[in-house]
Write a protein that binds this DNA or RNA. Structure first.
Lengths: 360, 360
DNA sequence: TGTATAATTTCTATCGTTAGAAACGATAGT
DNA sequence: ACTATCGTTTCTAACGATAGAAATTATACA
C-alpha cells in the first residue's frame, strides 16, 4: 500500500484482477478463468468480465503470474560483445525467434572476460530466467564443470565440444571446405587462406583452416604453407596487412579464402591497392556473410553460417528443455548436438563456374 | 507444489528464505533482515544465517522480491534494429550503464515498423519493466500522444522534439559543423557533403546538412549545391555511388563530409579507384566514429556522437524518474532536454592542421 | 530488585496471480 | 419429490519475498 501509493514514483496505479472482479461483480478466480480461457465460464459472465477488463484497461501482471507459475518467460543470451556485428546479428535473431515462442531475451555481454562468462552462468540473474543460451569465448574444455548448472542450458559455438550439454554449432569445417572447393572449381590453383591462428586446436580459426585443407586435398592440390597467412585479430586492417605481406613477398595467389568478412574486406583493398583486380586476377571469398558483405566493391562472395538456423535451433531446444520435453529427436538422457549447415552466397568477388551460371 | 515438483521441468529445487530460516533456526524475517542489511541483527544470528545461506547456496528470488517491492529492476530499450552497428553499440553501452545502476535491459527491436514501435510503448511487456528508453524511427511529431504513457520514458534520437518528454539527443548540427570547419581549417576550400536526404526536415540527415551549411557560412564559403550528393541509404555502396557520381561529372572536391562512416568507407574506395589519394588529394571525414572506422585504409577521421554519454544520460535520467527524483537539474514538472556533445576523432583521412599537430 | 528502555527477533499481512477444492444452482433420471 | 450429475462460480491457500507491529530478550538506571 505505502509503496504503491507513494508519491512521485512516476507510475500510475495499474488495475489488478481484484479491481476487475469488483467492477464485474464476480470473484477473482472467475476473472482469472476468463483471462486464461477456462472452459466452464458462462457466456454472460465472460462478457461482463471482458467489459470490465476493457473499461479498466486491465493487463495481467506478468511478474506476479510468473512467480505463481514458477517460470519467468525470460531466457538469457550470453555473448562476448554485443557491439560485434556477428553477435549483434545473432542476438537480433535470437530475440526474434524467442518472441515467436512467447519468450523474452535478456542479452548479457560477457565482455571478453572469464569472470563475465562465469557470472552469466552463476550470477544473480539466475532467478529471473528460465534458461540460458551460452556462447563462450574464454571458457573452454577445461571449464566443463562450470557449465554443469541446474537449469536448462544450450551451448553455442566452437569452443566447447561435449556430449554433456545441448550444443548448436556452425559448419566451420564444411563451410571452409566448400569455399575452397568453389574457388578451385572456378579455376583457381593457388588458393591462399588469411587469418589463421597457428597452434590453436579448437575455435573457428582452426576449424576453418581444417576445412581449407580438406578442400585442397579433395581437389588433389598440395597444401603450401606459404599461402597460409596468420592473423590473430580479424579486423579489416588485419586483412590488409596479411594480404600485403603475401603480395609484397611476391606470393600471388589466384584465390583467397578469408576466415571472416572483415578480413576479406581488407584483402579486397590490398589487392586493389596492388593494382590488381578482383575477381579477374584474384578471387576472394569471405566467411560469415555479414550484412555489409553485399556492399563491398566488388560485393563479396561469402559463406553464410546460417545464423538464423543457429538462433532458431538453440531457442527451440532451450524451450523444450524448459518445458521438460526431450528436444528434437534425442532419446531420454541424450543431448542435442547439431551443426547448422552453412551455405555459399555467390556475389562478384569470385569468377563464374565454368559451364553454368548456377552455383553448386 | 505440483508445479515445483513436477518431473522433468529441468530445474533443480532452489532453496527459499524459509529453508534458510529453518536451517539457521530463525524466522524468515530474520533471514530477510540479514539479506537486506537491517541494522539490528546480532552478530551471532547474522553468522548463523550467513552460514546457512552459504551451505544451502541460497539466492534471493528476484521476481518475488520485485513483486513485493512493486518494481522489476528491468528497463526496456526500444531500437529499430539490433543488427545495425550504431544501435548494437548503443545497446551495448546502455546495458553496461544500466548494470552499474543495478538494472537489467530488455532490448526490443522494433524492426522498422510503426506497429513495432507502438507495441514497445503499449505492449504486454509493460508490466515487467520499470521504464523505457525509446529510440523511434517511424513515429514522429504527429504521434506525440502515443508517447504519453503512464510510466517513465526517455526519448532518444532526432525524430521527436518536444518539451513533454525527457529527451537525449546527439549534437548532429554541431558535429557536422565541426567536421566542416575542421576540413576548412586544414586547407580545404571545396568541401562536398555525401548522403543528404532532400526534403527531410527532421532526422539526422537534415540536421547534419544544416551543420555543414553553418560550417561553410562561418568560414565565409559559399554553399554550392553541386557539392551536395544525396543518398537515401547510408551503406558503403551508397557512398561509392554518390562519390563516383560526383567525380565522374568532373566535380572534384578537396574535402568530403560523409554523413556516416559507412558512406565514408565507400567514399574512400571511390576516390582510390579514381587514382587519387586520401588525404593528399581529398580529405574525408565521417560521422558516428563506428568501431571499424579505425580499421579503414586510411583510418577514418570521424565525428564521435558520444554514444557512451547518450547511454549514460538516458539510463540515469530514467533511473531518476523511476525513483521519483527530479533528474539532473530540472525543476519540478520540467523535462530533461540534453544534447550530448560530439567530438572529433582525428585519424589519417584528413591532413594535419597548419601550424600545430594538435587537433582543435 | 523492579521497571523503563533499547536491542533483537518473531508474527503476520501483503504484493497479483493461479488452481485445487468446496459450494452453489440448475437440470435430469428414477 | 429426492438425489445424482453437471456446469459454473467462489473460497482459500499458495508462489517467495518485504516490513510494520507485536513480542521477546538484554541492558541500564534508580
Amino acid at each position: 500500500m505505502s509503496l504503491a501509493d507513494s508519491p512521485g514514483t512516476g507510475r500510475g496505479s495499474t488495475p489488478t484482477m481484484k479491481d476487475v472482479a469488483q467492477a464485474a461483480g464476480v470473484s477473482v478466480k472467475t476473472v482469472s478463468n476468463v483471462v486464461n480461457d477456462y472452459e466452464f465460464v458462462s457466456k454472460a459472465t465472460r462478457g461482463k468480465v471482458n467489459k470490465a477488463i476493457e473499461e479498466l484497461g486491465y493487463r495481467v501482471n506478468v511478474p506476479a503470474r510468473n512467480l505463481r507459475l514458477g517460470f519467468t518467460g525470460m531466457i538469457s543470451l550470453a555473448i562476448p560483445d554485443l557491439a560485434m556485428p556477428y553477435f549483434a546479428q545473432l542476438s537480433s535473431l535470437v530475440i526474434e525467434e524467442a518472441k515467436k515462442l512467447g519468450m523474452r531475451v535478456l542479452v548479457e555481454p560477457t565482455l571478453y572476460s572469464r569472470e563475465g562468462e562465469i557470472e552469466a552462468l552463476h550470477g544473480s540473474q539466475r532467478s529471473m530466467i528460465d534458461g540460458l543460451i551460452y556462447s563462450p569465448l574464454e571458457l573452454g574444455m577445461d571449464d566443463l564443470d562450470q557449465l554443469r548448472v541446474d537449469y536448462p542450458l544450450v551451448v553455442v559455438g566452437e569452443r566447447i565440444f561435449s556430449d554433456q550439454f545441448d550444443h548448436v554449432a556452425t559448419e566451420n569445417v564444411e563451410g571452409a571446405k566448400h569455399a575452397t572447393a568453389y574457388l578451385i572449381n572456378t579455376g583457381c590453383r593457388r588458393v591462399a587462406v588469411i587469418g589463421t591462428h597457428p597452434g590453436e586446436k579448437l575455435g573457428s580459426a582452426a576449424l576453418r583452416l581444417e576445412g581449407y585443407r580438406q578442400g585442397l586435398e579433395e581437389a588433389c592440390l598440395d597444401y603450401d604453407p606459404r599461402l597460409v597467412a596468420p592473423s590473430r585479430m580479424w579486423h579489416r586492417i588485419d586483412g590488409v596487412n596479411a594480404m600485403n605481406a603475401l603480395l609484397d613477398q611476391g606470393i600471388v595467389p589466384d584465390g583467397v579464402v578469408a576466415l571472416n568478412d572483415m578480413l576479406a574486406a581488407g584483402v579486397l583493398h590490398s589487392i586493389q591497392m596492388h593494382g590488381m583486380s578482383v575477381p579477374d586476377d584474384i578471387s576472394v571469398i569471405g566467411f560469415d556473410n555479414s550484412d555489409d558483405s553485399q556492399y563491398l566493391s566488388p560485393s563479396l562472395t561469402s559463406i553464410s553460417p546460417g545464423l538464423k538456423a543457429v538462433a532458431r535451433l538453440s531457442v527451440r531446444v532451450l524451450k523444450d528443455r524448459i518445458n521438460g520435453v526431450q528436444p528434437l529427436n534425442t532419446k531420454e538422457g541424450e543431448h542435442v548436438f547439431r551443426k547448422v549447415s552453412s551455405s555459399l552466397v555467390v556475389r562478384n568477388s569470385t569468377r563464374a563456374l565454368p559451364g553454368n551460371e548456377i552455383a553448386v
